[in-house]
Design a binder for these strands. Structure first.
Lengths: 337, 337
DNA sequence: ATGAAAGCGCTAACAA
DNA sequence: TTGTTAGCGCTTTCAT
């Protein structure tokens, strides 16, 4: 275990003062080319790495960005994380990861922890953020952006897609495919902004086509495979056999498909199913899932870029950014004659 | 943005010296209950959080563990990560995440970065670690454990499952189910220790049952859905129709199933398919995948515990830990009469 | 252009 | 039991 080389060692070996060394590694102030080269040589030779701890201590910049996630094995989260990670690396930031398992208590703890570690910014991915958490974060004055179902309910920096429109479009698509009895399975039991927007997209599309809204057709579950399965099973058990089901999450949609199959129906021959997000799984599953593509990777990337801008006090055009979605037609929805 | 409260502020406000404050926050040295209480009160009142940067600078302990992953949206990696995360939290360590996209260059960079950030330990998840990387890590004297296909080729700390046995068992299970012409699709083109062990498990099982090994039945691909699909398609295109296929990765196995279906065969009626890992997807997919369960979560947890022990200089029984596997029978393998 | 020195917030000898 | 002080490795005035 070799002793760490410090700026002092380099200075001594190069025959200069530590301030000069500091200047060349940060090229902050003019240094003679000659001296600069000398120092650079010594640095290379010794393999010196500046200690970011010491540096952060004085500059108050940790080059760390805290990322709070509700879950690590959820594909939705993963794809966002990829985007975050990529941009962070681009700007030489590192990621401090905090997994909360969707527990509010853990969320508060994580915020504290990140704060203690002097993160310069926070990207928070959470199914549901509430006022407490937001206040807590905003209070410590750390730039933060949110990716959450409830983000649009608050005056905070957030990135999302136009859920209302997307839901409207998919519902319309389903109608255009000849379906009228369209079940709508939401991915949260809570009354979030997102659920409201989505429901409104759904019902508007129906209304415009003079289809009456049947509350027996709408269910509220969660994002997981299991909840999708359960919701659809319930529906079927209640004797409701829709033409199509629009499940606003891919994993849940696949759960629904399985419930349908287990009940003896076929997808899409008997019942069409549409999802939301276009997660990796959507392309793999058979039948391939017709879904609305959300640019998850980009959402992560954009969120990260936002906090970096905030850190640098660069102006942001708007607090809320909406990214475009897209209906992707695959195999799980079929024309109904 | 409120100014950060430091140990000095607390000391002043409590009317004691900073060392006393330091003593109570670390309860390192005896302090009168009275004084202690006073300090604690002030801390609570002011909301003081010790600056870990400053602390780390002097103690040389960052409470940070670097985790290097080859990929963020791979379920195999995710489940391991969950285990790592959980144990880290238990021991009050934070995770610095480095994603390498399986690029060797990025891997070296990441190691540097983690090192610079003064991580106390490293858990490296990599499909293939090679000598360069290992030397590089071992050289900087940071405790590290590896989860990798090639880990067993080197004298390093690693955690894995008994691949040879597992593969043997699954192959035997397939044979017991009446299959003889068993395709074997490996998840790496490289000649890794793991592939060798697995192949040996496969061939030993065949030999013991007096089934000749047919090299036309063995393919080498990758871990992804696509590679699984391609391998199986190739096999089928070559006119080889096996009784069963043992694909040593779940995502790839599902790719194989799809290739089989696309070629007009049914799984498991015409061809049985078995996977490896028992990833979340294995339970969701239809037909549900028969596979060998690897305790991914536990592997992560154990790996993390190992590095923590190493950090604390606690003795480790062995450099290589093997965790138990299990054959899980589901729907993708059927008895052949 | 360069060096000396102060100080970031904290811990850990060493005194008292 | 407590306070004083010297650093940890670095950046950044302020002189030179």
């Amino acid at each position: 275990m070799k002793k760490n080389i410090t700026i002092k060692d380099v200075a001594k070996q190069a025959g200069v003062s530590i301030s000069t060394v500091s200047r060349v590694i940060n090229d902050s102030k003019p240094v003679t080319d000659e001296v600069k080269q000398k120092v650079l040589d010594v640095i290379k030779e010794t393999g010196y790495i500046p200690n970011p701890l010491a540096r952060s201590l004085v500059t108050k910049k940790s080059q760390l960005i805290g990322v709070i996630v509700p879950e690590l094995s959820d594909s939705f989260v993963n794809e966002i994380l990829n985007g975050i990670e990529e941009v962070a690396k681009m700007y030489d930031y590192d990621i401090l990861l905090a997994n909360t398992y969707s527990s509010k208590e853990q969320e508060l703890k994580s915020i504290n922890l990140l704060r203690a570690k002097q993160v310069e910014g926070i990207v928070m991915i959470s199914w549901l953020v509430d006022e407490d958490q937001i206040n807590y974060i905003e209070n410590c004055g750390i730039p933060a952006t949110y990716i959450s179902k409830t983000a649009r309910d608050y005056d905070i920096y957030s990135v999302s897609t136009s859920n209302e429109e997307a839901t409207y479009d998919m519902t319309k698509y389903l109608i255009d495919q000849g379906h009228e009895k369209i079940a709508f399975v939401m991915t949260s039991k809570d009354d979030t902004c997102l659920e409201r927007e989505r429901f409104s997209g759904y019902s508007n599309a129906l209304k415009e086509h003079n289809i009456e809204i049947d509350t027996n057709l709408v269910k509220r579950g969660g994002t997981t495979y299991e909840t999708g399965y359960t919701c659809m099973k319930e529906l079927l058990d209640e004797g409701v056999v829709p033409h199509a089901a629009f499940v606003t999450g891919d994993e849940a949609a696949i759960g629904a498909i399985n419930a349908i199959c287990d009940a003896g129906y076929r997808v899409p021959e008997d019942i069409s199913v549409a999802g939301f997000n276009d997660v990796k799984l959507a392309k793999i599953y058979r039948p391939k899932l017709t879904t609305v593509f959300q640019p998850l990777y980009d959402m992560g990337a954009v969120a990260m870029r936002m906090v970096i801008k905030m850190i640098n006090n660069e102006p942001l055009e708007s607090k809320k950014i909406e990214l475009p979605y897209q209906i992707v037609e695959r195999e799980s929805v079929k024309l109904r004659k």
